[in-house]
Design a protein around this nucleic acid. Sequence first.
DNA 1: TGATTTTCTTAATCTTGATTCATTTTTTGA
DNA 2: TCAAAAAATGAATCAAGATTAAGAAAATCA
Lengths: 190, 190
Amino acid sequence: MLNNLTDHIKKFIDLSDTDIELINLAVAVKSVKKKAFLLQPDQSCKEIYFVSQGCLRLYFINKKLNEQITQFAIENWWLSDYYSLESGKPSNYYIQAVENSEIISINKNKLEELFKKVPRLERYFRIVQQRAFTAAQKRIEYIYSFSDEERYRNFSKRFPEFMQRIPQYMLASYLGFTPQFMSKIRAKKD
Amino acid sequence: MLNNLTDHIKKFIDLSDTDIELINLAVAVKSVKKKAFLLQPDQSCKEIYFVSQGCLRLYFINKKLNEQITQFAIENWWLSDYYSLESGKPSNYYIQAVENSEIISINKNKLEELFKKVPRLERYFRIVQQRAFTAAQKRIEYIYSFSDEERYRNFSKRFPEFMQRIPQYMLASYLGFTPQFMSKIRAKKD
DNA sequence: TGATTTTCTTAATCTTGATTCATTTTTTGA
DNA sequence: TCAAAAAATGAATCAAGATTAAGAAAATCA
């Protein structure tokens, strides 16, 4: 549903019918099956992804050869490897669908053209980026404030619905500890 | 020097002389003595800060009553508590000068007015926020990729000049470990 | 629906970095 | 310039969470 994107944008800026048409011409809608990849290491990232429906994860393989998830994206979130996108360098990351998902993508160059045609979109993305940055900061604050066990309990209190949607080992990875440790703390009390 | 700010902006977007005037009218320049505070907990954060000269740090007091630094800002970096800024809620953070510094501040409301007069600034801040987010992501990647010792060695290789500017205990705090542990790994080899 | 793959659990041992407490070195400011 | 405060070091003990190695339970799919 293309509307999911423009509806989201309308929460932050006004859009004329022409604006909406221009946006819809610039984007592409993809149905992505669970476990399918939108980005793999050594590809350079050319697009940003808006989750219209479903869930994506961003992860890399660390030195111990485990998957390390650094972000999830659910409905109304953007996801990309901005480092690769900006630098043009090959990514270290995978972007993979955690569920069957509907994704709206915009190519980097098309987005630049779109900014020229609809300059107010700069404002929308400024706000979106600021929020993403704020969330990343909060995450760093949490990492340094709480023990792994506390972060797990905290997360399960704050996002009980989301926990239903993903396997536990993915949450363990996102929180930065092993599935074994997660079992241990879950066994204590839940 | 007001020029430091407009010069930085000009790296990303074109500015007319009028734009520059409007920007300079909206901002305030402050000389900030080492250890002076720009923000303290329970105040709500009303401004964003651009470091024209010097160094700022953003930190909070964690549950163990230690200072936890989450960001530094040196020349040409912006710093703020965006969470407090956006929500209007009282901050949990201190923003403090690490060195005698020259800081250019913009009040939140003045910035909104300025965006109306110079809409291209939305683009500048979009790019700045995207880079800040990318840096925060990289930081999270590092936290989960490397041991504390590896992160220390990594940091000292990548930013030798910056390490000269700040006390070691601040770097230990930023990297998330104790000064004692830092002494230990420095003693091994340097 | 049964076989295979994926996910979760348990337990023993090991490691990294915290804690505590004391001392030394460096910086600052009156 | 010297006293006080701030910063860095050292060593002993401790704890959170990793690792390793099974095995059990759930989900998937042909």
